[in-house]
C-alpha cells in the first residue's frame, strides 16, 4: 500500500449506506419529471421533422428533402479530374501514396460524392491487371498524409479500376457525405516491383462527382 494514500481509500468497505447505491425504483422524483418533459419536447421536435427542419441559419430556406439525397436549388455540382503520369512516380516503386486529385470542401458547405472514377490509360496496353495488387487507389478526407487521413467508406483500398470519365461508377451503397473544409484526396500507390509490369507511359486518372450544399 502506498504510504501517501490513506487506508480508507484503499480498502473497500462493505458498510455501504443506502444512499450510496441509487438503485432505480418505481417512485419517480422531480428530476425524473424534468427528464420526462425533456423527452416529451424531443418527441415533438422529431414529430415535426427534426432539428433539420427547425434550426436553420437566418435567411436560409429549409430543405424540402435531405440535401445529401436530392440536390437542393442552392447546391453546386463538382467534378474535378486529376491525372498522374506513371513516369512521375518515384522509382523504384515503394507503395507510397502519390496524390492524383485534391479537392477542398468550401467552408460552410457540406457535400456528397455520388460517383467516382479511378482508371489507367495508356497508348497500347497499360500492363495493369485488375485486382493483381499492382496499384491501390485510395480516396480519403480529413487530412493529407499519415495517421490523420480518413479513408472514405469502401474506397480506402481499391485494387481495380472503377468507371470512366464518360461513365462514372456510383459509389457503393449510395452517396458518401463530406463535410465543410474536408480535404478530399485521391491517391494511387504502386506496389514494389510493379515498374516492370506497368507501362511507364500510362496515366492514372481519378475523378469524383457530386454536389455541395449550404450546411
Amino acid at each position: 500500500m502506498r504510504a501517501d494514500v490513506g487506508q480508507r481509500h484503499t480498502v473497500r468497505s462493505n458498510a455501504v449506506g443506502e444512499c450510496y447505491l441509487r438503485k432505480p425504483d418505481q417512485n419517480p422524483n422531480v428530476y425524473d419529471a424534468c427528464l420526462a418533459v425533456d423527452c416529451g419536447i424531443w418527441n415533438q421536435l422529431v414529430g415535426q421533422g427534426g432539428l433539420h427542419k427547425l434550426c436553420c441559419p437566418q435567411g436560409r430556406q429549409k430543405y424540402a428533402h435531405r440535401p445529401w439525397v436530392a440536390m437542393p436549388a442552392e447546391g453546386r455540382r463538382f467534378k474535378p479530374i486529376g491525372i498522374l503520369a506513371v513516369a512521375d512516380y518515384p522509382l523504384p516503386f515503394d507503395f507510397s501514396d502519390a496524390e492524383v486529385l485534391r479537392m477542398r470542401v468550401p467552408l460552410g458547405y457540406d457535400g456528397v460524392i455520388t460517383d467516382v472514377v479511378c482508371e489507367l490509360s495508356a497508348p497500347g496496353g497499360t500492363g495493369f491487371v485488375e485486382a493483381a495488387g499492382d496499384i491501390a487507389w485510395r480516396l480519403s478526407a480529413n487530412g493529407t498524409a499519415g495517421n490523420v487521413r480518413r479513408f472514405l467508406r469502401d474506397l480506402g483500398n481499391l485494387q481495380v479500376t472503377i468507371g470512366s470519365l464518360t461513365v462514372p461508377s456510383p459509389v457503393p451503397r449510395g452517396g458518401i457525405r463530406i463535410y465543410s473544409d474536408d480535404l478530399v484526396i485521391f491517391t494511387a500507390a504502386f506496389a514494389v516491383g510493379a515498374e516492370v509490369r506497368i507501362n511507364p507511359l500510362a496515366r492514372v486518372i481519378c475523378s469524383v462527382t457530386g454536389w455541395f450544399y449550404p450546411r
Binding site: 441509487r22 432505480p24 425504483d25 425524473d32
Partner: peptide, 10 residues
C-alpha cells in the same frame, strides 16, 4: 446533475 439525481435511470 438532473440525470444523476433521477431515480428512473440505470
Amino acid at each position: 446533475e438532473v440525470l444523476r439525481r433521477a431515480r428512473g435511470y440505470r
